[in-house]
């Protein structure tokens, strides 16, 4: 394996949900890569398929959902079709996970110390005392004061922000190469959110951990991510370096998404408005799924599905994005 090979490669991933009324496709031909130590932000609105893509990578798609096509490779090794026992070893050891609600990610009946020690001993061959010492070191690293005392407390004795720090410590236990973080700050207040984002950034820099950061909060993405993928109706519609995608988006959906976010700097009379709503999975429009809401749609958009193509500094799946696009004023 060469040094330049991506840490994670997702190739034409397809995720389906069979239902009585036919098969719903939640994720269509999604391909992306994450390099070592890179933070990839995945944004989109509810139902865009961003969380389920993250769940597929950690092997936690709830049945009846299933990976119906494509490959997921970690350091060149396929992990999408591993037997459950082997996937459990990958999950935690090589890929860590952080979810939105820190309370449901922790077992309320065990002290956080026990949960940390158990996780460490599952993945690393260490003794009890060594694992406990490592757990305390981890808690200190994520900024929990008086870690050696608080390690014997239960999750309910921690505040929301502190709990999310514990969850981060849990995800880091086995020094994974990749962390999938699904809305890690959404349940937190802004001042706490800022602390957690800073912590996540510092930890990844120190440990060289790559992150797939799934969120709907563009502000969080802007500060954290190296690259950004925008998802719409189960597909990536634009992907590229964070600064380019945020300041010079090329896909009409990305342009609308950026414009619809109220900003403290600017003062606008009206926000950019994308009329309509994300289509339901059982009624995805033909051609480009965004065409019914797109102000610039042409006849071709209604018939043909655009592929991701270079557009400026990013790649966008839009028939019109290849040509120089005037920025929406």
């Amino acid at each position: 394996m060469t040094a330049s090979a991506p840490l994670l490669a997702v190739d034409r991933l397809r995720i389906e949900f069979p239902t009585r009324r036919g098969t719903l496709v939640a994720v269509h031909d999604v391909s992306f890569e994450i390099a070592r130590g890179e933070v990839l932000g995945v944004v989109g609105e509810s139902g865009a398929g961003k969380s389920i893509t993250g769940a597929a990578i950690i092997g936690l798609i709830d049945p009846p959902g299933r990976i119906a096509g494509g490959e997921i490779r970690l350091e060149g090794r396929r992990i999408d079709a591993l037997p459950p026992a082997e996937m459990r070893r990958v999950r935690g050891r090589e890929i860590g996970a952080v979810f939105q609600d820190p309370l449901t990610s922790l077992n309320p009946l065990y002290t956080i110390g026990r949960q940390l020690v158990e996780t460490i001993r599952t993945h690393l061959s260490t003794g009890e005392a060594e694992a406990r010492a490592r757990a305390i070191a981890l808690l200190e690293e994520v900024g929990i004061p008086a870690a050696s005392r608080r390690i014997d407390q239960y999750p309910h004795q921690f505040s929301g922000g502190m709990r999310q720090r514990v969850v981060l410590a849990l995800a880091l236990c086995a020094q994974p190469k990749l962390i999938v973080a699904d809305e890690p700050t959404t349940a937190l207040d802004v001042s706490i959110q800022a602390q957690i984002i800073q912590l996540l950034k510092r930890l990844c820099r120190d440990h060289g951990t790559a992150v797939m950061l799934v969120t709907h909060d563009m502000g969080v993405i802007a500060e954290t991510a190296d690259r950004v993928a925008v998802m719409y109706a189960g597909r990536i519609v634009e992907i590229g370096p964070a600064a380019d995608l945020i300041h010079r988006p090329r896909h009409p959906y990305s342009i609308g998404l950026m414009g619809s976010i109220p900003s403290i700097g600017g003062s606008v009379e009206r926000l950019v408005q994308i009329d309509g709503a994300m289509p339901r999975l059982d009624a995805v429009p033909s051609g480009c799924a965004f065409h019914p809401r797109c102000p610039r749609a042409i006849e071709r958009c209604r018939r043909e599905l655009p592929e991701l193509r270079p557009a400026g500094a990013t790649r966008a799946a839009c028939w019109l994005a290849g040509s120089p696009v005037e920025q929406a004023a």
Binding site: V190, S191, A194, E223, I264
Partner: peptide, 14 residues
């Protein structure tokens, strides 16, 4: 105000 993530602050620490 310092805690609000800002779109224009790509990559900067707050």
């Amino acid at each position: 105000l310092d805690a609000v993530p800002d779109l224009r602050m790509t990559g900067t620490a707050r």
